[in-house]
């Protein structure tokens, strides 16, 4: 089984040190959900993933990475 990694924390930092709460409000989820996504504990829906990528103005693959061999 693979694992989905992400660069949300780095991207938040690069976007004026955006807080988890600010990102959560922009994509319509709770701060706790953003935290869970960031830590790789929760894989967001495709729609939420696209919304996150849109907030950072990046393509999806710049934000999320899939590794087939990781868990």
């Amino acid at each position: 089984m693979g694992a989905i990694r992400n660069d949300i924390r780095r991207l938040r930092f690069e976007h004026g040190e955006m807080t988890q709460q600010e990102l959560a409000e922009k994509i319509g989820v709770t701060r706790q959900t953003v935290n869970a996504i960031e830590q790789g504990k929760y894989s967001p829906s495709l729609e939420a993933a696209f919304r996150i990528a849109t907030v950072f103005g990046r393509p999806l693959e710049d934000v999320f990475h899939y590794s087939a061999n990781e868990r």
């Binding site: 319509g28 989820v29 709770t30 706790q32 959900t33 869970a36 929760y42 967001p44 829906s45 939420a48």
Partner: peptide, 11 residues
């Protein structure tokens, strides 16, 4: 505000 907010996808 958090209490009024609808459930998100994880909820």
């Amino acid at each position: 505000a958090e209490a009024r907010a609808p459930r998100d996808e994880r909820d």
